[in-house]
Design a protein around this nucleic acid. Structure first.
Lengths: 245, 245
DNA sequence: AAAGCTTAGTGTATAAATAACACAAAGAGA
DNA sequence: TCTCTTTGTGTTATTTATACACTAAGCTTT
């Protein structure tokens, strides 16, 4: 059975990363050269996206893109919106690009956005032979297509989700310090938090497990390491839920 | 210029209503009769949805559906999700229905969900000559296609939005009493609230304007009427925002 | 070996928000 | 005029949020 791509529907992935200082997003270079002269016409940045296959679920398509990108398959993913503005692909550069990649530039494409949280900074990133790199979210300027709009929506959705549930751990290695966790919140929300109050607040949660292990290789008092327990989180969430009904 | 429908993309609308007691949702009857014998094969319920036109924005398509339904054009709308499970239209009844309406049942359709809040209980509802009526949200059972999944997602999104911003007013007439507002929150969240504490909390907001007008035609002490001021809300929201930065 | 540097880790007091709770007043209807 | 129903209001206790500073640990430098 042949899988055919659906020419009207795509999925775009906004991949966030964190280096204990700033929030980053993965972007791909889009280079276009004049087919005759070979001269570079433009060189800008896009999100990673692709059409979905017919008979493929939207979430599966997003997983597929992330797998192509990282080789990993257990990455946190969350849908945050659908984008269907008829002019979303109409900028001249975008029209050139679509034509060059054998797609009908007049074709309407509705795209569904997923954001994903990547904690593995060491993974090798490659996508369709194009350059992929991390960019600080705060410094991202205009992007190809409507991808800046999509990125902004992803960031809003990330903030909102982070207030509701402890998904921030997906941006950290499995063992992390409380300061690293605090810096994550500070980076995502663009605020400063009080260390003692932050620790008091998270001390109330049961799913943050202190380990008998400390940081190594730091030139100062090493901090204790913690891990996030998804099982405890799911359980305490249910307990709270039961109680609230 | 001919507008063509896009056979792969649709929009479904979840229309909520409120009668000061319960939260309701609008559903359409879907009757299918055997083309030969004329005997009724099934009679169930769906949301209102339709394919989008090529060159039409997703939000516009949702507005169009609501306008067909109510004749109104200023209804509150919010996108809450995209649904693309390849099996979402695969139940036998759904396949029969698609074939009968000249659509290819094997065709994949990704649908984008919008919920809308309708405060006008007096509007005449008609849609494609089919019966449309209000059903208490709590009593809705299985629906056609994956529409129960979509309805549940809409309700979750409504609750979440209602915690973030005062969209509840969209479900009330322009003049309303505080008790009616309270009952709205109670209906949506399925909880009981303390009258005095509720009033204290909303007294803090500036966008709830008391009128020099009272309820009429009630067999008890008439309550004062209030209205929601969108202008004040937008302004105070910006003030808070400015302050927080 | 000692001094210096940097980040970790901890408690208390004050202010603000939330939660629990009861009764007099207004108008319609009998 | 009496009854019924819903409105509208304040205080206290509890919980939660905020502001704030110093010692401890380990590595680095001298």
């Amino acid at each position: 059975m042949i899988r055919t791509l659906n020419s009207n529907i795509s999925v775009d992935c906004v991949v966030f990363g964190f280096d204990f200082e700033q929030l980053y997003v993965l972007l791909v270079e889009r280079q276009y050269h004049d087919p005759v002269t070979g001269k570079e016409i433009f060189n800008d940045l896009t999100l990673m996206g692709n059409h979905i296959y017919n008979n493929e679920d939207l979430g599966e398509a997003a997983e597929r893109i992330l797998n192509e990108l990282t080789g990993l398959s257990d990455i946190y993913l969350q849908q945050f919106g659908a984008f269907g503005n008829p002019l979303r692909l109409s900028k001249p550069n975008d029209q050139l690009w679509l034509a060059a990649s054998q797609r009908d530039p007049k074709n309407m494409i509705v795209t569904v956005g997923y954001f994903s949280l990547l904690n593995n900074q060491d993974v090798t990133l490659q996508w369709k032979g194009r350059n992929v790199s991390w960019y600080p979210v705060n410094e991202v300027g205009e992007l190809a297509f409507d991808h800046k709009v999509i990125l902004d929506a992803a960031l809003t959705a990330l903030r909102r989700s982070l207030m509701d549930e402890p998904i921030g751990f997906e941006l950290l290695p499995s063992k992390f310090t409380l300061t690293q966790l605090q810096k994550l919140y500070e980076a995502v929300f663009g605020t400063e938090l009080d260390k003692r109050n932050f620790r008091k607040r998270i001390a109330k949660t049961k799913y943050l497990i202190p380990l008998d292990e400390k940081q190594t290789g730091v030139a100062h008092k090493p901090a204790r390491l913690y891990m996030f327990s998804r099982e405890v989180y799911e359980k305490t969430k249910r307990e709270l839920w039961d109680f609230n009904i």
